[in-house]
Design a protein around this nucleic acid. Structure first.
Lengths: 178, 178
DNA sequence: TTACAATAGTTTGAAGTCAAAGTAATATTT
DNA sequence: AAATATTACTTTGACTTCAAACTATTGTAA
């Protein structure tokens, strides 16, 4: 992520003012929120990828690995991976290709359905996932960039956004992303 | 964005439980927040790109255009665009290439510094930026997916995250992203 | 004045995203 | 049983991101 001089003002708050001055005041708050999420994503992705780079992993690959770590048998159909990570089938193909190239995952035939490809984590993949998780916990997850009080508040707010997008139906909690 | 059946539970809340059960409890909240931001970004980017697609724009191109709309002379050095949008110089080159291909922007020489390329918005670019903004206001910014009360709360929380990442120094507000 | 450092942007390569189209296999309908 | 629809994944192409290296220009130090 490109580094730059720290600005003395909040650029998104000022953009919100520009929006209001352009007679789009009603949408200004929403614009500022959307832009904030985009920027927060950029910041966190850069931090996560930096923490993962010693393991030659990216966040996309790491997420796929962790899905397999937490799966009961250490293997899942590619379609299920795409469903859980909410990415396009072509993206799953791409990520599993690369994990396979690094011997962290192996593709297997489905026992009864030849349309279906299973991704199975390897012992090496499991070990790397564990070490990468510990690095991520230390470098990012234990200090996500907001105070303790804010973490739950932000999570709840973003959960509302995810629910309204149809990610899930209720706050009763069962199975998992990973 | 791939559509999928709505889950009856919150996948990220469940991942947080997995994290706690794996003895990474201290980092579980941060992990859930980071993953929430990633997913919120995905949702919002898909909605924004869908609203922009009739104009043959993407969010990256749209942001660059709006930066020029709000600039005082309708033109900026590419380095300044990268600084404000907080993207890599190569990304700016790429986005300006495409805006140029669509005749929405023109590259110009700097009057006194031959290292510097200026991006100047065209009349056609201005018109499209306005129409695209109106479409975005209607489709996304006026209904970002959380209730009115939550918008400011989320904005404030994400501002804390951006500040801690060095985006800006204080909450006194001056100039702008765009 | 010259040599060196820094800046601005471009090019190349890698990574991951999605849309569309294609291939192969399975499920359903007739 | 055969035809048709659907599913699962892959391939291709477009888009955007960043890292590293490169080229050209300007600024600074000696």
């Amino acid at each position: 992520m490109a580094r730059r001089p720290t600005l003395p003002f909040d650029p998104i708050a000022e953009a919100r003012r520009n929006w209001s001055n352009a007679d789009w005041g009603e949408a200004a708050e929403g614009m500022a929120l959307v832009t904030s999420v985009m920027r927060a994503h950029q910041i966190l992705l850069a931090r996560v990828d930096e923490a993962l780079s010693p393991f030659e992993l990216t966040f996309a690959r790491y997420e796929a690995l962790m899905l397999l770590v937490f799966s009961s048998r250490g293997k899942l159909p590619l379609g299920k991976i795409g469903e859980r990570l909410q990415v396009h089938p072509a993206s799953v193909t791409n990520v599993i290709d690369r994990l396979e190239q690094h011997a962290l995952v192996r593709r297997e035939r489905h026992p009864t359905d030849q349309r279906t490809t299973l991704a199975a984590i390897t012992p090496q993949g499991r070990r790397l996932a564990k070490r990468a998780s510990e690095a991520l916990n230390a470098a990012v997850f234990s200090q996500p960039g907001v105070g303790d009080g804010r973490v739950q508040e932000l999570f709840d707010g973003l959960a509302e956004l995810r629910r309204s997008a149809g990610d899930f139906e209720d706050s009763t909690e069962r199975s998992s992303t990973f």
